[in-house]
Amino acid sequence: MIKNSINPVKERNGKACLKIRWVAIIFLNAALTLPALAHDVTVNLTGKVTNATCTVSSDSIYKPVLLGYIPLKTFYQYPMSSAPVEFKINLENCGAVSRGVQVTFSGTPDDNVPDYFKLSNDGSDDSASGIAVEIMDDARKIIPVDGKSKSYLITSGATTKSLVFYAKMVTNGDALKTGNVNSNATFVTAYP
């Protein structure tokens, strides 16, 4: 007579331990053979087909604008400003842009006049005070900090476009002090 070839663990009740072991093996095998749980997943894909846009010309990626050397007496009262200085942002590789291009200038707004750009304070004593910088479109209408310009139309078939803007120094109501005038603005183009 052949005895059971499975040797139960020697415990107080060997048969009970053997039954528990078999039940555990059956459940483990069942768990391994069950299909993985599936979930319904919805992927929402969106996009927009547009006309070809322009790229910023390499000469306009970093655009220094010299506002000039203005005597302090020019700003004898508030509000006063220097003469506007023209600068251009050049675009190239333009496609058929239906309405044109708009430009948003971002930067730090002046504390007193938030539509104007604050001077960059580099911590040195040679920085001017009482002055902010104003940016305008080609019609000399102010473009406030983080505000969009008018739409500059791009002629059908044109592959390049020069966007004309103006910048000038303006008093902001603080005490005037001579020194360097430095301000930074970052521009982004959009095609409405």
Rank of each mutant, 00 (worst) to 15 (best):
V113N: 07
D138T: 09
D146F: 05
G123T: 03
D110A: 05
F117K: 00
T108F: 00
T108Q: 07
K150L: 13
M136S: 15
K150T: 15
D110M: 04
V133K: 13
G107V: 00
D146Y: 05
D125Q: 06
M136R: 13
I135Y: 06
Y116E: 12
R140D: 14
G147S: 14
D111W: 00
N121E: 13
D115Y: 01
V145F: 10
S120F: 15
S151R: 11
D110L: 04
V133C: 11
D126G: 01
S120M: 12
A139D: 14
D126E: 06
N112V: 00
I143D: 09
D111S: 15
P114Q: 04
A128P: 04
L119F: 00
N112C: 01
S149W: 02
K141I: 11
S149E: 12
A128C: 02
G123K: 03
S149K: 15
I142R: 15
G130D: 11
S149T: 15
G123M: 00
Y116S: 11
P144R: 09
S127C: 07
I142P: 11
I143R: 03
I142S: 14
P114Y: 07
N121K: 10
D122N: 08
D126C: 03
S124E: 04
N121I: 03
D137S: 10
I142D: 08
D111I: 03
A128R: 05
N121Q: 12
L119I: 12
P109C: 02
S129W: 08
K150E: 08
G130Q: 14
D115I: 06
E134P: 04
K141Y: 06
A139S: 09
L119M: 10
N112E: 02
K141N: 13
E134I: 08
V113F: 06
K148F: 10
D126W: 02
V133Q: 05
I131Y: 13
S151L: 14
D110C: 02
Y116C: 12
D126P: 01
A128Q: 12
S151D: 13
S151P: 02
P109H: 01
Y116V: 02
F117R: 00
V113T: 06
D122E: 09
A139H: 05
M136G: 03
D110I: 06
D125F: 09
G130R: 15
K148W: 08
D111F: 01
G130E: 13
D125H: 05
P144V: 04
P114V: 04
D115L: 10
A132G: 13
I135P: 09
S127Q: 11
G123V: 04
G147C: 05
K150I: 14
A132V: 05
S151C: 09
A139W: 02
K118M: 11
G147E: 10
K148E: 12
D137F: 03
D137R: 01
A132F: 03
Y116M: 08
D122L: 01
L119G: 07
K148S: 15
D146P: 02
I135D: 03
A139M: 05
K150M: 11
T108V: 15
N121P: 02
V133N: 08
T108E: 10
S127L: 03
V113W: 02
S129V: 10
I143M: 09
P114L: 06
K150A: 09
M136T: 13
D138K: 09
D125L: 12
I142E: 14
D126S: 07
S127F: 07
N121H: 06
D115C: 06
K118T: 07
G147H: 10
I142F: 02
S127D: 10
